[in-house]
Design a protein around this nucleic acid. Structure first.
Length: 444
RNA sequence: UGGCAGAUAGCUCAAUGGUGGAGCAUUCGGCUGUUAACCGAAGGGUUGCGGGUUCGAGUCCCGCUCUGCCAGCCA
């Protein structure tokens, strides 16, 4: 019977068939120890020359790393290791002999592996990351479904710059001129929320920024919920509940994969409601108390400005200083309006602030969520669009949402790969997606 | 786009300005409980590209290309 390796413990002392690839093989005289992987796990087989036919023995000697094969054998407990099963092999069918495999079990450099991403994905570490990525997305979908959100897919081709700030990838669009690859589905999600109440988008987004850091890609996946009649506090309550659910679900269901990654899950177990909530203004006070200056580029290098001036956006050193005292995600809300996007609603209690919120992940993983209550006053929204020098005609449909039954509403955007990086404790975001796209890499 | 570091065997790295090495991978041989197995042997090089200094350059200098890290932008 053909089984997958993750179900092997159910078949002790039974004969099973495994279809997979040769991960590694050790030899010891007339004993062979092939390690076979099938995508669901790795199992060590044993081939004893005295117990198999000459044909089977000869076939095993032909195998190279990553050759594909089908083996038959009896599942037995490992003589020395409890809870480990191995396969006493009695037959083999070679499916394909692999050419010399470039990725060995030894160390490799980043560039070498990135050039062979299609093969790198077969290694246990990458398999574990992809399984966790899958679980994160599944947990997101389950949470949204259970909480009556409707999946509302936003278009990828768009005529306008949603935030105006980021550079967009452009392409020719028949007789209609330029089209751009979406950098956010938010504006469309707002239309969805007015139709359906609570919606979310989940899909790829694109930013043509030459960002060469461990946290950026030109193509990444984003999950963007949008809720009618939610104010900023409702929004933060949702984020809190949602993040707790996803993190706790993944550490429960993906224990084995997190162990392969050597992830310290005790740090993830602490991700429980409530999360600390500080205002931007309070955050600035913390930075001043810790004497973290603003770093600004000048023609002759860099200058440090202290105390940290109110109104400036935070950089990596500031995020780190704000997060270091907490072991949970941190909300920073009520930002200076000048630093944020046009669609964020002004704080009715202070016109210099917007009702925006960023969520910083613990352990220095930085911003994973950006959200806000949206401007629902048609006149103020038009004013903001003018202030930001955005093409008014492209936003007519968006303004319509305020023209026909405008309501308070809120939403946020979660970077899937940043979430994966955080939960898997990855050094670099390039491992968080099957085929990463960065400014200097589009292959494979 | 700016700052810093780097490019040597298929891979990961070493080599005071003086005959370019090691481990792994590959090929061959040995071993009945191996765990990135081990032991023995063999093959494997236009030192990223271009110029310069020098009796002599992987090594020093200049330019270029590429890669990595950090910063900005953000998710």
């Amino acid at each position: 019977m053909w089984i997958y390796i993750n179900k092997i413990q159910n078949y002790e002392n039974q004969e099973v068939t495994i279809k997979g690839w040769l991960y590694n093989m050790r030899t010891s005289g007339k004993l062979l120890f092939p390690e076979i992987r099938d995508g669901y796990g790795i199992i060590q087989g044993i081939v004893s020359k005295n117990d198999v036919s000459e044909r089977v023995w000869e076939d095993f000697l032909k195998l190279t790393q990553e050759s594909s094969l089908i083996v038959k054998g009896v599942v037995k407990k490992h003589p020395k290791k409890p809870d480990v099963y191995e396969l006493h092999i009695n037959d083999i069918t070679i499916v394909s002999i692999a050419e010399p495999y470039p990725i060995t079990l030894k160390e490799h450099g980043v560039e070498f592996l990135s050039d062979r991403r299609h093969l790198w994905l077969r290694t246990p570490r990458q398999v574990a990351i992809m399984r966790i990525r899958h679980e994160i997305i599944q947990a997101i979908r389950d949470y949204m479904y259970q909480n009556d959100f409707i999946l509302f897919d936003a278009p990828i081709f768009t005529p306008n710059a949603c935030e105006g700030t980021s550079t967009l990838f452009s392409t020719d669009y028949f007789d209609l001129g330029k089209a751009y690859l979406s950098q956010s589905g938010q504006l469309y999600a707002e239309a969805g929320a007015m139709a359906l109440g609570k919606v979310y988008t989940l899909g790829p987004t694109f930013r043509a920024e030459y960002s060469m850091t461990r946290r950026h890609m030109t193509e990444f996946w984003m999950m963007e919920p949008e809720m009618a009649y939610f104010d900023l506090d409702d929004n933060m309550n949702l984020i809190e509940d949602f993040l707790e659910y996803v993190v706790q679900r993944v550490i429960k269901t993906k224990e084995k994969e997190l162990e392969i990654l050597k992830r310290d899950t005790s740090k993830l177990e602490k991700v429980r409601k409530p999360f600390p909530r500080i205002t931007y203004t309070e955050a600035v006070e913390i930075l001043r108390k810790k004497d973290i200056p603003l770093y600004r580029k000048t023609p002759n290098g860099e200058e440090q400005i202290r105390p940290f001036p109110w109104g400036e956006d935070f950089g990596a050193p500031h995020e780190e200083a704000l997060v270091e005292d907490f072991d949970k995600p941190v909300f920073i809300h009520r930002w200076p309006s000048a630093a944020k996007a046009f669609y964020m609603k002004r704080d009715p209690e202070n016109p210099n602030l917007v009702l925006g919120v960023d969520v910083l992940a613990p352990e220095g993983f930085g911003e994973i969520i950006g959200g806000s209550q949206r401007e629902d006053d048609i006149n103020l929204l038009i004013e903001r669009i003018k202030e930001h020098n955005l093409p008014m005609e492209e936003f007519q449909w968006y303004i319509d949402l305020r023209r026909y039954g405008s309501v308070p509403h809120s939403g946020f955007g979660l970077g899937i790969e940043r979430m994966v990086s955080w939960i898997c404790n990855l050094e670099h975001i390039r491992e968080a997606i099957p085929f990463p796209r960065r400014p200097n890499r589009i292959r494979p």
